[in-house]
Amino acid sequence: MKNRLRELREARGWSQGELAERLEVSRQTVNALETGKYDPSLPLAFKLARMFGQTIEDIFVFEQPR
């Protein structure tokens, strides 16, 4: 799933490690989220949305599978 996580993180000047600490996940998980290799659970998506002051739909772009 495409997302704007990197853009939002960089806008706040956070490193992946800092975001990982805030989310209580590993840096590798943040990297996998940003590159779209891992889709977060609903609780983690809500946590991200609240952290960035956005809605889930503003951060994650759902793509219809072909």
Binding site: E24, V25, S26, Q28, T29, Y38, S41, L44
Partner: peptide
């Protein structure tokens, strides 16, 4: 091992 998995983050658990 179970304690390790239980306290891992969601991607690691997957």
């Amino acid at each position: 091992f179970v304690r390790f998995v239980r306290d891992s983050d969601e991607m690691q658990r997957r």
